[in-house]
Write a protein that binds this DNA or RNA. Structure first.
Lengths: 190, 190
DNA sequence: ACCATTTCTTAAACTGGATTAAGATTTTTC
DNA sequence: GAAAAATCTTAATCCAGTTTAAGAAATGGT
């Protein structure tokens, strides 16, 4: 089991060596290539993914054929299409590696079996989900309160390294404006 | 314990009579008046609220003094400021009754004690949180993909009764545009 | 029932950010 | 290391939704 996941779990619940060995049997560690797709739009999402190393983007294709990024999955975060996962409905999203990445896959059915053997993990995943919900509420808060330019400056302050290497057009998409507008804002003095 | 909460829990986990009696000791049922505030901006949110009857809104005051509604809490939903709850940080939000309502209050500290006695409830709240996360992802999806007019029509189709009685200016705020624009859209033929 | 407050509508002028188009630069591939 | 592909920039024009302003209608308290 990757150290990053081990550390993340220990921050919320404590598992002994035996528990960890059991958990290791239920997860799959995968390395995925840049641009490799791990969930396709229209397909049922049947797993949660923990980003050990790298980065994924969650996006959809709009009516006019452009990509709209709605979420990024960064290191030490779980990502999934939680609607598709719970309702067993076809996903609205693609999940794709932005760069070569290492992820942990936890299948929904296996997760349910695992919870019977390690009920402490219900607590871990409850806390992970509630933390993500808090982040999502703040995401919506900022989408409502900030202008496009403010969103860029706020994001750039919050994730200065991230905006260094991410393609600008992906950043623009995620922030909800065009690459041309991002260029304009970056070109401004001050 | 209100029947609505009992029914909601049973949809996810099963509790026996004894469990329910125990649970009842940890919750508080409150009736709140129209416009009564249950969480103030700047204050720590230390509970989750289940809406038995009625409706609450989650909002903030913008720089220019207007209210921006970011969420509604409707019947059979849990609401909270999940960031403030987990991080014990001051909330960015007000939570206020839109109409006279009945709610169940579950305090964070009591909830933790309760989980020791009824670990099945970790599962219940995990599922509640994951379902809310799925809804939040779709919320963001639609915020990105729809125009203001599309958001109104989509919301009106999804909650036809709700838009009947909710003040239009609250609906406009929640949908992210001005009451004047809503008036214009509603005035249109077709 | 009546007055005060809250909510809703209409319409003209305005603006933040999109669209369009074209060229410049950087990265990848072979 | 050259060609192809992907990414970024600049600038003119355009438009969805805001702002401003003022009046109309509905609701609520006593």
């Amino acid at each position: 089991m990757p150290a990053a996941l081990f550390d993340h779990i220990q921050k919320f619940v404590s598992l002994n060596a035996e528990d960890l060995e059991l958990l290791a049997q239920y997860i799959t560690v995968k390395t995925i290539a840049k641009k490799e797709v791990i969930l396709n739009e229209g397909q049922r999402c049947d797993a949660q993914y923990f980003i050990v190393k790298g980065c994924v983007r969650i996006f959809t294709i709009t009516e006019n054929g452009t990509e709209q990024i709605t979420h990024f999955g960064i290191e030490n975060w779980w990502v999934s299409d939680y609607l598709s996962l719970e309702a067993k409905s076809p996903s609205h999203f693609f999940i794709q590696a932005v760069e070569a990445s290492t992820i942990v896959v936890l299948n929904r059915v296996l997760q349910d079996e695992l919870f019977i053997k390690l009920p402490q993990l219900e607590r871990y995943f409850r806390m992970v989900a509630q933390k993500a919900l808090g982040a999502s509420m703040m995401r919506i808060y900022y989408l409502y309160l900030q202008t496009a330019e403010e969103r860029y400056r706020h994001f750039a302050n919050s994730f200065p390294e991230f905006i260094q290497w991410i393609p600008q057009y992906m950043l623009a998409s995620y922030l909800g404006f065009t690459p041309e507008f991002l260029s304009k804002v970056r070109g401004k003095k001050i």
